[in-house]
Every structure is written in C-alpha cells, then in structure tokens.
Design a protein around this nucleic acid. Structure first.
Lengths: 249, 249
DNA sequence: ATTTTTTTTGACACCTTGTCAAAATTTATC
DNA sequence: GATAAATTTTGACAAGGTGTCAAAAAAAAT
C-alpha cells in the first residue's frame, strides 16, 4: 500500500513536470499571454482544475517555469568560478556566462524580467517568492567569490566601495543593463553603435580597470582568456551559439 | 462653420488629454492590469467605444501614457547638459537626472519597461512604435553631447571603444542596470549592500575613471559638483524627493 | 427644415481566469 | 472481493476583460 500510495504520488509529481514542460514551451513560443490554462490542459491531457492543484495561479506557474530555467544560469556561473586563473579572469568568465545564457535564451531572460514586475510578484504565493529570492541569493553569492578572492589576494583594493557586496551589485547592474538593452529591440546600429553585442566586454574591462582590479586590461592577455573560455569551459555553449556549418537544410 | 468644426475638433483633442490623464492615474495606482476600459470610460465620462476612437488598443493607450511621462526625463536631461563645467560633470549631471527621475517616479520607470517587452510592442501600431524610437533617440543624442565634447576637448581618449556611440550605450546600460535593480524589490540590504541607492554614483565614477575621462575622481571635487546640482540645477527635484520637514500630518 | 456627415454608444461575440460541487478514482478496511 | 473512506479530477459556472460594429445621436452642411 505504501507502494500504491507513492505510485499515485509519483504520477502526480511526474504530471507537475509535464505541466512545467508544456508551460515552458507555451511561454517560449507565445509569451505570457499565450500561456492559457485551456491550451496547457489540453497539452498535458488533464483539466484546468488539475493544474490549479499544482499552482495557485498563472503567475505562480510562470514563476515556476522561470525558476526552472534559471538553474541553467546557476550552472553556468558555477562553472565560471571554477576557472583556473586570476580572480579577474573568473569575473570575466561570469560575465561571459551571463552573456551566453542571454544569447542562448533571450526569451527566458525577458520572461524573468516579467516575473520581477511588481504586478506579477504581488500575485505570487509566499513560498514561490522565497524560492525566487533564494535563487537571486545563490547567483549573488557565486559572483561574490571571485571578488572576495581578489580582495584577499590584494588584487583588488576597495577605495570608493565600502564592501564586496557593493562591488558585486555594481557588476551585476552593469552586465544586466547591457544584456537588457541588447534584448530590447532598440536599434543601436541606427544610433551609431556598430557592434552592440561586443560592447559589454569592453565596458566590463573598463569598469574593472576603474576599480583597479589587477591585472589591468593593458597588462594581461584577456583575449586568450576569452579563447580559453570559448574552447574549454564554455565550448558546448559557444558551439550551440554559432553552430558549425550545419549540413541540414 | 470653420469655427464650429474646430470647436468640435478641439473638444476631441481635449478629450484625448483627459483620457490620457485618467489613464495615467489608473496606470500609476493600479498597474497595467488595473487600467480597464470600463473604469477609464467612467472616469472620462464617455463610452468604451469612444476611447477606441483615439487609441487602437490598450497597449497603444499605455504606450501613449509612457511617452507622455518620458518627456519629463527628456527635460531633465536637457537641463543636465546645460551644466556649466567639465564634460565629465555634465555626464554626472545626466546620471543624477536619470536617478532623480526614477526616484521620483519609480512606477513610471517600471511601466516604461513593460511597454518595452516584445509582447507589448507587438500590439503597438507602427506610428506609436516610431514615436517610441524617436524618444529613445532624443535621449541617446542628449547623452552623446558631453561625450563628444570630451573627445573634442581631449578629456576623453577612446582606446577600447570605437565610437562615441559605444560609450553612450555603455553609460546608458550602466545607469539603467543600477536603476532597474533598485526598482525591483530585490533586498540588497540582506545581501550585504548597506546603501544600495548610493552605489550608482560610486560605480559611475569607477567606470568614468576606467575610461580615463579627465579629470579623474581623485583629481577633482565631484562632491561639490553634486552639491551644486542639488542646490541649483535640480533644486526643485531634490526638494520634492526629500521634502523639508512638512508641517502636514 | 432637411439631408448628409461625423461621432458616440452599448449590446454582442469572444476569451480568460479561478472556483467548487459533483463524479471518478484510488486507497483503506473488513 | 466488497464496501467504505479519502483523494483526485472534472467541467459548468460566475465574474470580468477586450475589441467590434450597426444603430442612435449629434453636428455640420444645404
């Protein structure tokens, strides 16, 4: 009977996964508005009522999808901080991880912003809100590591900034701002920016130089850092981003 | 008869203004979801159908409100670039203008992001889309001025960056990222950032130093720049932000 | 006054969310 | 294995939203 119980239980768990997968697809293909309980129920072969057994409302459902999606970002950040090299190289690795995530999943990135809107979060049950905060914290703490390391190693001396956390916040804001602007459809080319996608990296190094984070851009071959990241740590992602001459089609 | 015609015409124009004002209030108080054609019609004392005479749909209406709101930002930027001083001081003035705008109107700032989402822009008529782009361009060009001036004066030498536009994009991304994060409800205090609001300015100077934009933070009294801006150029806004001991309530 | 043109209206069709009593199914009990 | 109890699933329902359009009302022209 314990088996039977958990059989049904497992069925329910599995269904939750199915709902999430189908919702993810709907969200990706048709946006928040395209996620309809009706359509979702049809795809999952259950009724609308059943979905409400798993998620308190549509917002909760979409937040769950985003949370699920964001684990890929966590994984990328985790990989980034394993980079064997200077602390500043690790920060560059994180920036590239962030950039890769957004480049590979622009809609996921945008969806995440939707759920950050207050209109959205207001409708979220407390539990989901907590999960979201924990995810933010996880990411924040991962970025903290190389910064703390740099301070400990004397590669970074805090002058203006009062704490490591402030530096992390700035780095985050900086990358986020760039990636956000890139995913809006503001035509930067028309505004005179030749290669908008490349600006983030120049900009990051400018900021890191401003911090005095050693070694400075001029004193180190960060181009080869980039290449190593491209060919080693993030090889699969770079390949996915720029598929080699595909034989299909 | 020409008079009569234009009388009615004027009535219609005026109504458009009324609709916009009421919509603005609804949007501010209750968010996008709280803007209901029904409620709006009631406030404006007309029928839902009439509103659709002015705006093709709800998105168009809200975009019009945001566009209207953003003229305050344009005005602040215009004022900022009139600052009599170093080009770098002017950039600081723009950053403060941006910060003031967001601090005074956090919801307006967030609403603007809503209309930047693709789900939203898809529903926008071409004409409104154009207006939005023009607004972005206006702001971009205003930021361009001090940067160009700095390059012309030799206060800023472009090393990494290839063009003035790239620098403007970076500055924009940087400020935007900070202001965005501040308006989400991410509890930065809990993450160890003591004064999240103050980080933007430190961060800006760090970036400007990284650019080598003269005079560097260490060689100039930017604190007094801030005070001048607070007491002169943006006095009314700072007062609105921190009202002196109010006698009311 | 009467006709033509323009503007306004609100009923209509359609869509969506979230609920809940009833039906179906699963689990427990004898 | 039959029956009772507990749990899960269902879909009709109420509520509330958008955008349309033929008809009514108002304004302008004749």
């Amino acid at each position: 009977m314990n088996d039977s119980l958990s059989r049904k239980q497992r069925e329910i768990r599995q269904r939750e996964g199915e709902i999430l997968n189908h919702a993810e697809k709907l969200l990706h293909d048709h946006g928040f508005h395209g996620v309809t309980m009706e359509r979702l129920a049809e795809l999952t072969a259950c009724s609308r009522g059943t979905i409400y057994q798993h998620f308190t409302n549509k917002e909760d459902l979409c937040a769950a999808v985003c949370l699920d999606n964001s684990s890929q970002l966590v994984e990328l950040f985790q990989r980034a901080v394993t980079f064997d090299g200077e602390s500043r190289e690790q920060i560059v690795a994180i920036a590239i991880a962030h950039w890769l995530f957004v480049s590979l999943n622009p809609t996921r990135f945008r969806n995440f912003q939707s759920i950050m809107s207050s209109a959205f979060r207001e409708k979220l049950p407390a539990e989901r809100e907590t999960q979201l905060f924990q995810r933010e914290e996880t990411l924040f703490k991962l970025v903290t590591r190389p910064v703390q390391k740099a301070v400990d190693d004397g590669k970074l001396v805090l002058h203006q900034f009062h704490s490591v956390a402030e530096v992390v916040m700035s780095l985050w804001a900086h990358s986020f701002g760039h990636l956000y602007l890139l995913t809006t459809h503001i035509p930067f080319q028309d505004l005179g920016v030749e290669a908008p996608k490349g600006v983030l990296f120049k900009s990051s190094h400018t900021f890191l130089d401003g911090l005095g984070w050693q070694p400075l851009a001029a004193d180190f071959d960060y181009r080869s850092t980039f290449e190593r990241l491209q060919q080693e740590l993030f090889a699969p992602e770079f390949t996915a981003l720029h598929p080699p001459q595909t034989a299909q089609r």
